[in-house]
Design a protein around this nucleic acid. Structure first.
Lengths: 220, 220
DNA sequence: GATTTTGATCTCCTTTGACATATCGAACGC
DNA sequence: GCGTTCGATATGTCAAAGGAGATCAAAATC
């Protein structure tokens, strides 16, 4: 249905996840059925004000009507007071591992997508870095699209025999690959990389990649 | 029905009035029937998110989900960016005159309510002050309850023959009377009072009161 | 590999918002 | 007085939310 409410709904969803709550957990706190929460987060329900407030309160959020004029200032304040989020480095590592699994699947389905390999390279290097705190944002911007793509293909798999990727998805892969390339060069210069335990000539795993600033020059 | 949505609804209502829009005018802009807007502002409708956003946008407001932690900061910012409101002194004078009319009615119905006399005194003094800008807030906090009380009694009048005031209303009158007393003492010291045209020994109108710090001491 | 968790989806039924339309009393202006 | 505007209400219709289930596939966990 997609209302103009997207932002609010998105914020609600993010808040729930940020607090580590499942839909069912939130359902128990609020009395709102899980099925309904799902519909809401999907954007398939035009929720009532009382319900919205109820959900928001359970997530320690308050609904505010702010003058359009004051919006930028308010957003800035919110960003300052409650920083982007405290994702732990451990969470990020988990994300990386999960994304690598997904990429492995995807690569077997789409062997000819070079972008996937670039993504894999970037993430594999990242998976060997102990503290990913500094790279959280970059990594998230890689892992998130990957999960999205997987969901897409999963849906396609259910219906069709033939799996095809829409142009938009291909473009997303390309863009994300750029981020992965950036990440790789950042990490290559990182003091964090040399450490851990000595690895035989940088050969890491079975399918692992040599990540010393390997040429591949072109960046776009 | 009274949901926790009160604040939002109140803000919406205030925003409409601040922009000088009638319910019908807002209705035309948004397509939402006036009858519905009335119900909403009355608190008798649990509005849907899409409708709320629509109304808000028409009033140049944006709905925001802000972390409870950031609330004070946000409220402060909003106050700074969009100042309290520009009620004109003329509007205030009008409010005062209207409230005086209402009090006259109320006093004839409830001759034994001394609080009403205190209110009348304060407002009558105010009605002779040219520029009420400095006292807008105080005056509003007097006139608003008066109008509310009138609405209550008006409703009672429709049903019953006997008109009685609930204890809560009596308490409201007492509290408001305190504000009126404050206002009177403020105005008594105001340079604005002496002015206008010479009045015969401060006898103003037919039912007017001598407002040089007149005793009347007792408050109960 | 087996089990639990999670989120999406469906059904059945009740409640209620949204809209249209009309009326009402109070207040204001002419 | 007379017409207008304002906000509050009433009635009837329709679509969608709310609520209580249950089911299911994919993920996460062990």
């Amino acid at each position: 249905m997609k209302h103009a409410s997207e932002d609010i709904i998105e914020a609600l969803k993010n808040a729930r996840k940020a607090r580590g709550l499942s839909q069912r957990a939130l359902s128990e706190r609020t009395g709102v059925p899980q099925s309904h929460i799902s519909k809401i987060e999907q954007g398939n329900a035009d929720i009532r004000l009382s319900s919205l407030i109820e959900l928001a309160r359970a997530l320690e959020l308050e609904l505010k009507l702010v003058p359009r004029k004051a919006l930028p200032a308010v957003e800035s304040v919110v960003r300052t007071v409650s920083p982007p989020q405290a994702t732990t480095s451990a969470d990020t590592s988990k994300d990386v591992r999960r994304a690598l699994d997904i990429i492995a699947q995807l690569r077997s389905t789409f062997p000819d997508l070079s972008g996937l390999r670039t993504l894999q390279e970037g993430l594999q290097i990242a998976s060997h870095v102990k503290d990913l705190t500094r790279y959280q944002e970059q990594i998230r911007s890689i892992t998130k699209p990957i999960r999205d793509i997987q969901k897409q293909t999963a849906q396609l798999k259910k219906r069709n025999d033939e799996i095809t990727l829409p142009a938009s998805t291909l473009r997303e892969i390309t863009q994300t690959a750029d981020v992965a390339r950036q990440l790789r060069s950042h990490l290559a210069n990182s003091p964090q990389l040399t450490p851990s335990k000595p690895r035989p000539a940088y050969r890491l795993d079975d399918d692992d990649i040599d990540f010393r600033q390997s040429g591949e020059a072109g960046d776009g």
